[in-house]
Design a protein around this nucleic acid. Structure first.
Lengths: 122, 122, 122, 122
DNA sequence: GTGGTCTAGACCACG
DNA sequence: GTGGTCTAGACCACT
């Protein structure tokens, strides 16, 4: 879990954020679950603690987790809340892509086909 | 045309590339059309010539344009080729987004609705 | 009573201090009332005794309570004294905020409106 | 300008943020004004560049400034926008303080007097 | 030269 | 032990 890909162009702290959110979305970490300590996670992933700290800090500012000095970081939101927020972001991005594609001549049927699952045969 | 937005987080050279490709896709610049010279475009956009040079270089690497020493840069492909290549990229990105959305619980109908135009009929 | 909110960014020992002061201000604990022992309160709140100790220590330093070796901690002040000290602090903070707000263009009437109760008349 | 007070308990990066916002609010730095570079400001204030970077980063995330890689950071909002946002924050804090004060027995007239300017004589 | 990210190591407040 | 901040120094992408 929480795999880091150094070849990915996205910054590490962002990958960590996504990894944590995924654990929450999947329900593996419910509300008030304590997440791994900054130092521990840094050790496991062979990453500098500051990088983990930054990821946790951003997540806290977004309200996804909350931190208690001297105790640790904890999940605040229910997974469904995080999930819906993520879906909104995806929807926004897809709408933009669709807009550009339409300007290039694609029609709605094509676009629909692109986003359909792989069971598109038959 | 070829508007640059400094507030955009995307690098300038990328915005220039997109601008050039758009001129080609729209058919404003057909095959073998000579592009504005590096210095001229740099002057018009108040941009460092190095940046224009990089944009042209990347476009040449992609085969969208070709350069002739001492004469300038020229459009190589027909607009339709560029258009289809762009659509492929968009398709790829949308497929990835759709995949993630599906993992978050979205179904094909929702995804289709997201990419549909707001009312382009009539 | 003396509820602790781990999600609150304020340190626990400060929340404990506030809780104790509130009991005094409300008159629930009069002068010379014995406070719950460090260990007992720590147990009730599921908190480290060190934290309670620190809260009591700070309160003693402020003169709100006094401790007798081997016997326990006791309320020293009358509730009204604590109350007036608290009001002074609040007054000070509000004056600072008001000063900043005035520099930003707010006038006295606005400020008055902000601090007025929502409809406590009748 | 942009004075840092090391005795202040607030983190340095926050003081820097406030300093920048003040320059904007006062109209000293209008929209699209380029702010001092990370390294330059770090040098002037004898502060580590990372700390300035953090301050700038937070301001960008709030939309107060925008950054262009390789060029610098620039003011995005008009001062009035920043000002109104700040006033909202202050109003919120004052409302909370007022609430507590009222629970302690203060009445609206007192509170009004506390927030009035120093020309309170007469 | 600019901003953006990361590492390494340190200090502090809190529990 | 925990998180939060800061410093120092490095590397990268972009202009």
């Amino acid at each position: 879990m929480l795999g880091i890909d150094y070849r990915d162009s996205r910054p590490i702290y962002e990958q960590v954020m996504d990894g944590v959110e995924e654990m929450i979305v999947r329900g593996v970490w419910g509300p008030d679950t304590q997440l791994p300590s900054v130092r521990q996670l840094a050790g496991e992933l062979s990453i500098n603690p500051n990088t983990i700290q930054r990821a946790y800090g951003e997540l806290e500012k977004r309200g996804v987790i909350y931190s208690v000095k001297g105790r640790g970081n904890f999940v605040s939101h229910d997974g469904s809340l995080v999930r819906s927020r993520r879906l909104e972001e995806i929807q926004k991005q897809m709408a933009e892509l669709a807009e550009t594609a339409r300007e290039l001549g694609a029609d709605d049927e094509q676009l629909c086909a692109w986003v359909r699952g792989k069971g598109e045969n038959a």
